[in-house]
Design a protein around this nucleic acid. Structure first.
Lengths: 180, 180
DNA sequence: GTCTATACTTCGATAGAC
DNA sequence: GTCTATCGAAGTATAGAC
């Protein structure tokens, strides 16, 4: 799916990679939509658990920022979004999952700001969560899918300077984020 | 392409909508990739002209902001990006076009900031252009494709307050931006 | 569960008449 | 330019034997 896009995920190719016959795919999932739905649900659940765990860590802001910058998650989300664009059931599922992620992020930022004594009038957690999500999504999109990196480093530095002021130096290296 | 995604754009359906036979599509474009490439080039060129024109207007920041928030442009870009994900020729074309858009935006912001006497150490035009593009892209993506709008209004207000301080009230209503 | 067999659809692309 | 005719490939999905 990541390599060739969702249209390339066909019952025949799925079966081939599993070393089985295409008909078995239909035996287990009936339709391809069911398969995509199951795939998405599993991935979303897994990711959400990771995000929840990040909040328990000693540096929640670093953890959330690094997680949201993981290219694999973003690339898959984009692919599913494109797929969901004309499958309303899948689209609804993605919408629901995105809303849950957003809530986790918002609550995480709000709690962290509270703990660090950040002025929440000046830095509203909701706006911060939107900016953080949009920026991380876009950076991955542009660099991974288009090969453009103009201005990325400076913008990343801006965010990370802010986090550094609150949580100090990052103690756990990010996963999957190149050159960070 | 916007309604059902790029995989639904087939020679047969293109021909049907043009009231012609599918073979004529191949006569004019040979392959479907050629068709997509031609389509993208025309759209990119058209959009770029609009952006360039926006810089000449009396309120370049408002114009750039409103243009970048036009859902149609973003949705098409996303669709082409997904398509380009497994057609390297198209991917390169999108990358080149995106770089040009970014340059126009950056230069526009830089010139405007200079004119308005903005402290460019405090508000680096390159970072502003990245933030602006990422935010507008993401807002469209989330609201149009997933139906999520949590935190959108507040974040938009933040940006528009900033622009308002520099250029005053918006004098030309935006095109295609819902509820703005 | 896993297989064979198969029906049906849609696609990209080419050849050749007019 | 536009058409008819056509090929071969790939897709989703079902029925039924083992």
């Amino acid at each position: 799916m990541l390599e060739e896009g969702y249209p390339s995920v066909t019952s025949r190719r799925v079966a081939a990679r599993a070393g089985l016959k295409p008909q078995l795919v239909h035996y287990y999932f009936r339709t391809m939509d069911d398969l995509f739905l199951a795939l998405f649900r599993r991935g979303a659940e897994l990711g959400l658990q990771r995000w929840a765990a990040a909040l328990e860590a000693g540096q929640p802001l670093w953890a959330l920022w690094d997680l949201s910058r993981d290219p694999r998650g973003t690339a898959l989300t984009m692919e599913f979004t494109a797929l969901g664009n004309h499958r309303k059931e899948i689209r609804a599922e993605i919408g629901a999952a995105s809303a849950r992620y957003r809530t986790v992020l918002f609550e995480g930022i709000r709690a962290a700001f509270e703990r660090y004594g950040v002025d929440q009038e000046r830095y509203p957690p909701m706006i911060c969560s939107v900016l953080m999500t949009s920026l991380s999504t876009f950076l991955v999109l542009e660099s991974e899918m288009l090969g453009l990196t103009a201005g990325h480093d400076e913008t990343v530095a801006l965010v990370e300077d802010f986090i550094r002021q609150l949580e100090g130096e990052r103690r756990h290296p990010p996963e999957g984020v190149p050159s960070a």
